[in-house]
Design a protein around this nucleic acid. Structure first.
Lengths: 223, 223
DNA sequence: ACAAAAAAACATGCTTGCATGCTTTTTTAT
DNA sequence: ATAAAAAAGCATGCAAGCATGTTTTTTTGT
């Protein structure tokens, strides 16, 4: 088991400054531990993810694990960074693929939310609410993500930038609604039959918020 | 703190079959423990809510607490039922207050989500994802709530019942979006400045989904 | 005085961090 | 080039801390 090691070096970015080093095996093991952590969080929840569990999932002893990560906290911290980088990477990829197509953008982000990374991130985000140490790491990343989300939108829809308020609204609506649907699905508060209609409605709403698309009834009651 | 005790007898439904007993003080203590549990879940998260903490919050010893609730599990179970009943009670109240006014309905549910009960419920819902015992209690209640949500809608907007698909969509949109906004706020993924615009947009969308309101562009690409 | 409520004491299990050896790989020196 | 030295990866074991549930003792109220 665990034969996918080479490319892991670049993934964690934790290797020494020198490129080809003797212990790139170390980086592979670190990556294996982080992957195991994500899997455990998804499967058992963050609260129930304990160090022996992660070590077993990674096929390592607890001692070996604490050799690579000084403490359980350090592991979690590295996992968060890894998740954030994956999030951004998937983002860059998406921004190159579909240019200006609302439908693709919605479906792309929806696909993103199906991956285990989102579940793990959501678990951590909820935990951070009552864990100051976690919040200190997570909150800045949340802000950075939302910010890049907006920046990407401005890049994909240049004609939209003038109406920045509507652009922000459309992006926030997309992010919040889709993540809300996914969370509700995870917690059993969502009728699966309504998912597609909701996504369709979201698409329509985003299109309607785009300038020069007719339909100017938005926020008719505010200024 | 915690002086609303008498009615707690009916609230937990766990009192003896006999109505008025000398030791209705017991019911008061039970209610105090449940309130303390909710407070702990909100403040420290479900995962970090431990029995000594709840006892201290309730001003009781751990021994006394286990006298009223055989185990920590029993306490949590009672707390869930209590939260569910509060949810439904607030619901009945809202359904009598604002009849057919979309704006009131949206703002009412939004107010509901500000109360600690929602935070506690969300904590439990997330925990239930990876806790089979919790899920067994929580999932049926989630379904019941969503169902009543729909039922209330049909009662408030009789002219809407014919178009059941649109009604379901509007209700799901309202619930998911508002809860999504609140969750995102709790986890630091929400720009506070966008909350009001989103709520305004939701109101507009729900109105647009109501039949006989003009604007028939909904889901133009489906069937 | 008697029964229920509350407190205290006890025993168990689990998680964590640290310290101790063993093996493998890389470096260094002749 | 090869053997010794150093370092890094890895595994096992141990003690402390804490949460849980049970049992026993004290208090309170009728």
């Amino acid at each position: 088991m665990a034969t996918e090691a080479k490319q892991a070096v670049t993934r964690t970015g934790a290797a020494k400054a020198e490129p080809g080093r003797q212990s790139l095996k170390s980086a592979a093991t670190r990556a294996r531990l982080i992957d195991a952590t994500i899997r455990c969080i998804v499967q058992h929840g963050y609260a129930n993810t304990v160090t022996p569990m992660v070590a077993a999932e990674a096929g390592l002893s607890r001692g070996a694990m604490l050799h690579h990560f000084v403490s359980g906290d350090a592991l979690i911290r590295a996992t968060i960074v890894e998740l954030h980088e994956r999030r951004l990477k998937a983002f860059r990829r998406a921004s190159q693929a579909n240019l200006g197509d609302v439908r693709s953008m919605v479906r792309d982000y929806w696909q993103q939310l199906q991956k285990p990374g989102f579940i793990a991130f959501q678990e951590l985000a909820m935990a951070a609410r009552t864990d100051a140490a976690l919040a200190e790491i997570l909150l800045p990343l949340q802000s950075e993500f939302t910010q890049r989300f907006q920046a990407l939108a401005g890049q994909l829809y240049p004609d939209w930038v003038q109406e920045s308020e509507r652009l922000s609204l459309a992006m926030a609506l997309s992010q919040i609604l889709m993540e809300g649907i996914q969370i509700a699905s995870l917690t059993g508060a969502m009728d699966k039959q309504l998912v597609e209609p909701l996504l369709d409605f979201l698409e329509m709403s985003v299109v309607a918020l785009r300038p020069g698309q007719g339909n100017d009834s938005t926020m008719s009651n505010e200024q």
